[in-house]
Design a protein around this nucleic acid. Structure first.
Lengths: 336, 336
DNA sequence: ATGAAAGCGCTAACAT
DNA sequence: ATGTTAGCGCTTTCAT
């Protein structure tokens, strides 16, 4: 165990233990076809030499890297951080390492990033994000690695995915807001071209209005980006629209809206009600605390990873699309 | 490009291009010793066949994985998420992939995790965290991979590290608080056995008191954990101690303290001043917004990664320990 | 239960 | 400028 030692290989162990490489390999991999005394002897040499199997060589020979790729839009978004945590825990439970790559705008395209992952021979990939470009989607379709979408919408339903039912979740939110007397409710979200917004959230929003006999107007739908200042910036327009409540799809964005409203002297929830969408810790940090759709973020990540292990193992999956239950957690930004 | 295609190897390309594997390898690796016409021909075949070099085989042959390991305490802590983002950006700039592993309590020890990284033949490692166990530290000392500590204290100064000057940063905070009239200032932080707390933050705290002629009392130092409820739980004790201000080392913890104070009807900053330590987005989310030490988190990560590339390249480093400048951002939780 | 030997796909001398 | 070849450290038939 000295810095100048060269790496110990399976050959060294075999020689010192007086057995063949094959036997050492069997011992290391828990193969039963090894006599107990042999196993013990080999183990002793392994300990003595501090032998550590080279995972790269192993990967080349076995064509399995015990590494998966995880693609996410941003490391600093608590939504994805929580999903990633679920993935990480289950991955390490099954002895997989994670190569984490975030979508960078600019340097290196999405496909580049995906191909890098494939070059590294990852055994599977988990994709997260509201959007997926057509190019990347096509690359994924043409590839042989198992892929699971976590908390992300697979527009064509081709891949396995783990989600909540965004349509009913948003419908529940809007219904809550309508029930407490709001007639004009804003919906504040990200890019309306994303399926998750256009095909799910917006649909839930519209369904709830329709069921209540309220008419839908695109003037009440605000498209922006997911950060604090965007929320603050959106507030004036929201307020001017005459809305008395808002569903905001992202917690950070919601915090921006909330604080701008508060700063403008609006009383929350008396004058304006607000519901957000991810139930990250931000909901507890703001004052008043934010009512939110409680997505089981950690579980979504964990279940997605578990699914991926099955796919990588060629086990068959009963349902390719798993919808986890959500709830609505009422806090201080709604009247109740 | 069909799912049933088998992988294209360098041999396939060589054969189809009518050259040797070595030449293909040269083309792929940008070696200049290739005639332009040959290069073109090879490139054409590569494109046609959608050849993608197998990074695992490459790693085995070249003994470089172009992968680094990143160890952090928690993926959902915005402090580390921001550091990781800096690391990630620079890593991808230099074509390195990141294997991200978080310290799990329980399953798999720290050493296990570290050894897994070594088994995967990572070219370097970045370590983050307030603490490091003696066992892991010793393992690291005995290993040959370059290691950089990012935003983490290397107790013995054996490894390269990137930091801010925690002593003076905290001293500045306390001085600010003293200057605005506080005589009794609480310090709220994590495990006091960690060097970063015992040897740095506490020292800065004590120095500032001393310079102002105030006496230090351990009764004003509160040891807890970094989460929201811990902050709320700590508030009563802090208040009871008679402190009129507090330096809290972690943003989430600080938010907990702040909100508990607010909920108790204390006016901030009139009745109680508060300064936190990481300047994450949480500082902007709370009302009032939190005054904070502005650590250049992203830069710390980026610089650490840049250092690591140098170490992996055997370039020599001028300073093993880099201290990045910090500032104090005054917001609403302090009087001025 | 164990060993011999042929790869896995690539890089890196070494020749030419 | 290009080719030949010997590994890199391991797994995996195939024998025995």
């Amino acid at each position: 165990m000295n810095k100048s030692d060269k790496e110990i290989t399976i050959t060294d162990v075999a020689r010192q233990a007086g057995v063949s490489m094959a036997t050492v390999s069997r011992v290391v991999n828990g193969n039963n076809n090894v006599k107990e005394t042999t196993r013990k002897k080999v183990m002793e040499v392994i300990d003595k030499l501090h032998y550590r199997p080279n995972a790269v060589a192993r990967g080349l020979a076995s064509k399995k890297s015990t590494t998966i790729g995880v693609i996410l839009p941003s490391m600093t978004d608590l939504l994805y951080a929580n999903l990633a945590k679920g993935i990480d825990d289950v991955a390490s439970m099954y002895k997989y390492n994670i190569i984490l790559t975030s979508l960078k705008n600019g340097i290196g395209s999405e496909q580049q990033l995906f191909n890098d992952l494939l070059a590294k021979q990852v055994d599977g990939i988990i994709y997260m994000g509201e959007d997926i470009s057509n190019v990347l989607y096509k690359e994924m379709s043409n590839s042989r690695v198992p892929i699971v979408f976590a908390g992300a919408i697979d527009p064509d339903g081709e891949f396995a995915s783990v989600n909540i039912d965004y349509v009913t979740a948003v419908r529940d939110v809007i219904k809550l807001l309508i029930d407490s007397g709001n007639q004009k409710i804003a919906m504040v979200t990200g890019n309306l071209d994303s399926p998750i917004n256009s095909k799910y959230r917006l649909k839930g929003y519209q369904q709830a209005l329709e069921q209540a006999g309220l008419k839908y107007s695109s003037a009440n739908v605000f498209e922006t980006v997911y950060n604090l200042t965007a929320g603050a910036a959106a507030w004036d327009a929201i307020h001017d629209s005459g809305a008395t409540a808002a569903y905001v799809s992202n917690d950070l964005l919601a915090a921006g809206v909330l604080n701008a409203a508060l700063d403008a002297g609006v009383r929350i929830p008396e004058d304006f009600e607000l519901v957000t969408g991810s139930n990250t810790i931000l909901c507890d940090v703001t004052r008043p605390q934010m009512t939110s759709i409680a997505q089981p973020l950690y579980d979504i990540g964990a279940v997605a990873m578990r699914m991926l292990t099955k796919l990588m193992n060629d086990e068959n999956i009963q349902d390719k699309t798993i919808r986890l239950p959500y709830s609505l957690i009422k806090r201080g930004t709604t009247k109740n």
